[in-house]
Design a protein around this nucleic acid. Structure first.
Lengths: 282, 282
DNA sequence: GACCAACGATACCGCCCAGGTATCGATCCC
DNA sequence: GGGATCGATACCTGGGCGGTATCGTTGGTC
């Protein structure tokens, strides 16, 4: 199976329309039709049901869409990591660490300090990113290592080491009636009138339907909470960043959050290994 | 990057010889040279240092070798899983479960029984394989689900669920002096005169150097132990399979072994999901 | 030190296949 | 029933992949 065929198939499977897929790929429609036919012939499996009017994925097509995307990601990652390795060999070496903006900042600071003190430490570029974005960066080879938060981020496909586990708090506007409580339960929060949980964008940038304000970053969310328009559940380490307008109350029955350091398998970099060793010793 | 280029590069990187690599690939040497040059040009990175006499991998080449192998594996897996999905849709559906021969047999039997009792259960083909082979089968898409044993098998790249944790025992010939002990330590075993730990083949079939008899399967190993030529450390569930010539003694400071059920991420099969659910409920 | 063998690179050639244009055939909509 | 939409088919062209022949360099050998 050639990557060209895979790219073509993924395009058609996503568009469910040969014309649009061809346009997206920058080729004409007939070669695309032929390439898909050839792919189906070689696999001995129908991937698409086409009825001259609609295109739908077969069961095998669904499988190939998921697996093919993963394979293409692996190829792109190989490409990017090879380029990065070449740069590192001839230019300044350096690590890219992806971390969620506004999360685990204390842990992150400690890690960076401790690593910088190691012999042979290289400069670390920290990429702060939106929720679940670290995972993508790491998968695509744009980052060498990432701080992920279970159970929110998937660690599938990575090597990981646990760094810390913490319980969660609900962040509320200062002066909210609940802030006098020593602790609350999930049921107390989902029933809060006028303080819905916010909606974060999907990886593709779209917002899921439902109530709750749409937020794009942490600062925006904190401001909304201060304005009394939302509340949120966060790991308790976020308390360090709360200012006067906000208050936090432990949520007893929220899932605990585990911060893990993750890196791609096959990572051969000494710098990555050093950073991980430093992290696990914290 | 095309898979053809990747395959070519991996062949050269493994052989470190253009002629042999070309032979292995079934093409002539000149097109291979050109393909590698083109790949290097497109990546903007030297992958191989060639001195007319010897070929060595650069740092970037080492990265691409590891990442490229992973990417090629992903493509092969996509291919195989798609074919399997097509077969399952048109023919008899079925699952392939990979398990280490001679390990966790009781757990495996319970799992198969429990799953078979589920509504909508499909036939399960059990593939018993050598050490660390399950991992390869699962990675290559030849199995739908596998029982792995941490820390021996790598679970990188898979989703997993823990099934059981057990401590380890040393398996000795019956009548050996140590068999009267209630328990032993690792130091007692490595120092055993005339009872070395066996050597298992690498994934490529070669044996690592060192003392100890070469073994290929469990029966062979047990026979060697009964003959007083070797001993081995195994999870304690192996006791169920020991016959009269053999004895087991707990090893207090051996690492504990966790049996996990693993499946590829992106698995879309209901049967796999059912099996996993059954397993975690055991 | 000159010759030879080994090995990767280069030069050149032929053919296959990817991609393009034109068109067909079926289906849905008005 | 006519037109629009959309995937499939027919046919052509060119680039690139693979092949053979050969070169250039280097290391080993007598």
């Amino acid at each position: 199976m050639e990557t060209r065929e895979l790219r073509y198939f993924v395009a058609v499977a996503e568009e469910l329309h040969f014309g649009r897929a061809a346009q997206r790929l920058g080729i004409a429609q007939p070669p695309l039709s032929r390439a898909i036919q050839q792919l189906e012939r070689r696999l001995g499996a129908a991937l698409l049901d086409r009825t001259n009017r609609t295109v739908t994925l077969t069961e095998a097509g669904l499988v190939l869409l998921a697996e093919g995307r993963a394979a293409l990601d692996a190829i792109d990652a190989a490409d990017r990591r090879t380029r990065r390795a070449a740069l590192a060999a001839t230019g300044r070496p350096g690590l890219v660490l992806a971390a969620k903006a506004g999360a685990s900042s204390e842990l992150l600071a400690k890690l960076l300090d401790a690593y910088a003190a190691e012999p042979g430490a290289v400069p670390v570029d920290v990429t702060l990113c939106g929720p679940a974005e670290q995972e993508r960066l790491l998968r695509e080879g744009r980052a060498d290592v990432a701080l992920l938060h279970r159970p929110f981020d998937s660690t599938a496909g990575f090597h990981t080491a646990e760094l810390s586990t913490e319980s969660q708090v609900v962040v509320l506007p200062a002066g909210h009636p609940l802030t006098v409580r020593a602790h609350v339960h999930m049921a107390d929060i989902t029933a809060l009138p006028g303080l819905p949980l916010p909606r974060w964008p999907d990886p593709d940038g779209a917002y899921p339907p439902g109530p709750g304000p749409q937020v794009r970053d942490h600062a925006q969310l904190l401001q909304l909470i201060a304005l009394g328009r939302a509340c949120t559940i966060s790991p308790e380490s976020c308390r360090a960043q709360l200012h006067g307008d906000l208050a936090a109350v432990p949520v007893l029955d929220a899932s605990t959050v585990t911060t893990v350091i993750a890196w791609p398998p096959h990572s051969r970099s000494r710098a990555v290994a050093d950073l991980i060793r430093t992290a696990t010793r914290l």
